[in-house]
Structures are given as structure tokens and as C-alpha cells.
Write a protein that binds this DNA or RNA. Structure first.
Lengths: 227, 227
DNA sequence: CGCAACGGATAGTCATACTATCCGAACGGC
DNA sequence: GCCGTTCGGATAGTATGACTATCCGTTGCG
């Protein structure tokens, strides 16, 4: 198909990817980085695939804040996902981005999950009933009610949901032309999802500062009670 | 002003706040939790203020993912902020929510900061030029360019910024009636900012799954090249 | 009077993500 | 063929952060 792929040995991989050799060995042990092709002679050869994988690992660790087991899960999906429906791979990758461990249990949690899913379904959103993000969203709703009062309705999510759906259309529109194959589409989806999340949060904080200044600007408090 | 505040000792504080006594001692040592009023006899009395503070600590740690020094900084602002302009306290609290340490340096970083600030200023956003979120946003822009190509314009933020500003108006509108004094307004702003951030992220992931299914649904990839 | 609870100090634990060292085998330039 | 370098693989050590446990001398209540 294409010409020879340039291969090299582990020390060059370390140089090219600017990753300490000890970390590369660690990632190999932990199964985040596939082993290079082992020649009969017990020498392994690496390629550009491994350089990109190391970059992905760094983004998932530093930007998404994922722990090693979660990163491993994503790598497994990418390495073995060629057989599957692309949207299925992307959905499972998004699942794996949720780093929290134990979803809440109990009748309260089940009810919240149903409430959240019904809201999404009612808005015409195509999402699996048991998607990690849906389950986590239900938990977040419970947390919100515990903190701010039990009258917080799930409908409070609607303005945010509408805004996110509108923006998501734009995100995918912008990247559609880049998609060559399933694996790179999945990687692209990871970068698109992960790299923009902190930006979204920063923009929200900036917007909050802006509104706080407009609302409370230059007003000294006239009275102080208990915090 | 009001009647007697019910006070109690440290073991009851542990029970009420469902926090291990050892953690309470740790937070006292670290300066996250103000010392109870020390009677002449070397016994300290705590009140509801301390219960609420422990709850705030838990939210900042578990939801915002802040480290102890950042939480301490926020607590200091809340405890000593009575004298200051309210919007000023809120702005500095939002600064402290940014957990990353070292902003990038160099001419490239300075240029990016200027670019980002000019964009915000041009859109009429009232934000300090050196706000943590602005500096971090400039760094994120550099990271984006390093990953996706150096042609990513700062204007790519505009749709997100507009959406966040519109939502922020709504956020503050909903909470304006709750504001009794500066300290509780600041705490309210923290909860409003922090509790909704993970929800926003979850909704975005759900929207991405939705769009991915619509775009790639039920299509098996026909070819697979290198990842 | 005695025993539990207190404040305060110090040291220990646990998890995570590396990082360093050691070993024996294989290249590869001479 | 020799030998210094680099390899793959295994094992052990380190750094950090957030608690957690223990000890000690004091205090207060029944």
C-alpha cells in the first residue's frame, strides 16, 4: 500500500517523543504502548505510531487528568476497535473519559437516572441509557439537590444541553474532512472532546467574572453576617 | 443581633459533618478550618460555620479537584474578604480555582495572552487582563496550536464564549435573590461555578455522543490505515 | 478521684506514577 | 572473534499528597 514505514529502536523513540526511557518502559509494562515488532532476535522496532501514542497518553494524563487504568482502557479500544462500528468506538471512548469510580446506587439514584434519560430522550438526543455520562449526570443531579435544595429540577439542564448540542454540531462539522479511517477518527474525537473541555471551563469562568463585575461591581458590602 | 449560636466541641463537629476527627485535625493544622473559639481553659468551641466550611472543603476537593494549598487560599479570601469589594473577592476566588501551577513564559506566551485579551475586550467582556483564567486560556490556545496545527485562530473561541456569556447571565439571575452578604455571596458563587462545571462537561460529552451517532451511526469502517 | 475527651505534636500509612538499577544477551565496529 | 554499547525484561526504590494513628500532658465532669 504505502512505502516502507521508518522504524527505529527504543532509545530513538525516547528522543523523538521527548519521553524518558524509564517512562516508556513503564507504559510498555502497563499496556498503554503496544510492544514494537519483535524480530526473531528479541529486538523490537518502533514507528511513528508509537510516537503518536505517547502524545495521546500525555494528553489524556495531563489534560483529561486520567489515571493509568483509564488510559489503558482507551488504548485497548483504539487497538482493537477496527472491527466495530465507529460511533460505537467513539461512544465507549467517551465512556472511558469519565474517571470517577463508583456510581451511586439505591432507588434514589435509579430514579434520577430515569429522570435524566427521559429528559434527554424527550429532547431527541441519541445517547445510550447506560452511557457513563448519563449515569454521572444523574449522580451530579443528586449532588446538586443535596447542596442547593431538593427542588432543583432536571429541566435546569436544558439551556446548557441546548447550547452543548449546538456547539457539538459545529465541532463535528469542522473535523469531518479530516477523517481517513476509524482509528484516526476515534483519536480525532478524543482530541476534539478532551482538548476543548478545559477551554470551555475557562471561558465559563471568564463569563462569570464578567457578570459578577457587572452585577456587584464597585459595591462594598454594607453588612456582614455569618459565612 | 440573633440569639445564641449553638456551639459544640470537636467530637460533635466530627459527627455532624461526618468527617473523621483525624481529618479535622489535619484541616486545622493546614489552616483550612478556622480554630474554634478558644476559651481561657484551652477548650475550643465550634459552630455551624465550621460544619459548612467542612462541606465547602469537600466540594472543592472532590468536585473541583483542588489541592490543599488552593483550598487554603480560597478559605483565606473568604475569612478575610469582608473588607473588599464583592466582585473583587469573587474574581480572586475564581482565580484560585485554577489549579495549574506554572503558566508558560516566553514571547510566544505573551503574544497569545495579548491575542486572547484583545478578543475578550473586543467582545465587551469585563475581565482583568491578568486573570488566571485569561492566562490559562492563552496557554490552552498554544497547546491547541501545538496539537492541531498553528492555524487555529483565537476566534475559534467565539461561539463558546458567546454561549458561556449567555448562560452566565442566567446563572447569576437565578441566584441574585439569595445574596445576603458578601461572604455568603462569595460562597454561593463558588458553588455555582464549581458544581455546574462537571455537569457542563457531561452534557457536552452526551452531545458529542449524540452527534457521533448521527454522523457515523451504523457505518462499519471499510478500510483501516495506521492510527 | 478517676476516666474519657481535649489540644497539640510527631510519625506512619497508602496510593499513584514514575525512576533507577541490575542482569544477561545481542549487535556491530574493528 | 572481541568488547563496549544498547537492548529487553525484571525488581526495587523514590517523590508526592492527603490523610491517619499514636502519644502526651491537661482538663472537666460525674
Amino acid at each position: 500500500m504505502s512505502g516502507q514505514v521508518r522504524t527505529f529502536m527504543v532509545s530513538e523513540l525516547a528522543q523523538r517523543s521527548r519521553t524518558p526511557l524509564s517512562s516508556i518502559k513503564f507504559y510498555l509494562r502497563e499496556g498503554l504502548l503496544p510492544t514494537g515488532d519483535l524480530e526473531a532476535t528479541r529486538r523490537a522496532f518502533y514507528s511513528d505510531v508509537h510516537v503518536r501514542r505517547l502524545y495521546l497518553i500525555r494528553v489524556l494524563r495531563d489534560v483529561a487528568g486520567l489515571a493509568v487504568p483509564a488510559i489503558r482502557e482507551i488504548c485497548k479500544l483504539l487497538d482493537g476497535g477496527g472491527e466495530r462500528d465507529l460511533s460505537n468506538v467513539i461512544a465507549h471512548v467517551i465512556d472511558a473519559l469519565g474517571r470517577r469510580e463508583s456510581p451511586a446506587s439505591g432507588p434514589e439514584a435509579v430514579a434520577a437516572r430515569r429522570e435524566v434519560f427521559d429528559l434527554l430522550h424527550g429532547k431527541g438526543v441519541h445517547v445510550r441509557r447506560n452511557a457513563k455520562a448519563v449515569v454521572d449526570l444523574a449522580d451530579a443531579l443528586l449532588g446538586l439537590r443535596r447542596t442547593l435544595g431538593s427542588d432543583v429540577p432536571a429541566e435546569a439542564f436544558v439551556p446548557y444541553l441546548d447550547a452543548m448540542c449546538a456547539l457539538a454540531e459545529k465541532d463535528f462539522e469542522a473535523n469531518k474532512h479530516l477523517v481517513a479511517d476509524a482509528a484516526s477518527a476515534a483519536v480525532g474525537a478524543i482530541f476534539g472532546t478532551v482538548l476543548w473541555e478545559p477551554i470551555l471551563i475557562l471561558l465559563r469562568r471568564i463569563a462569570h467574572e464578567h457578570v459578577a463585575v457587572k452585577t456587584f461591581g464597585n459595591k462594598k458590602p454594607r453588612e456582614r453576617r455569618r459565612a
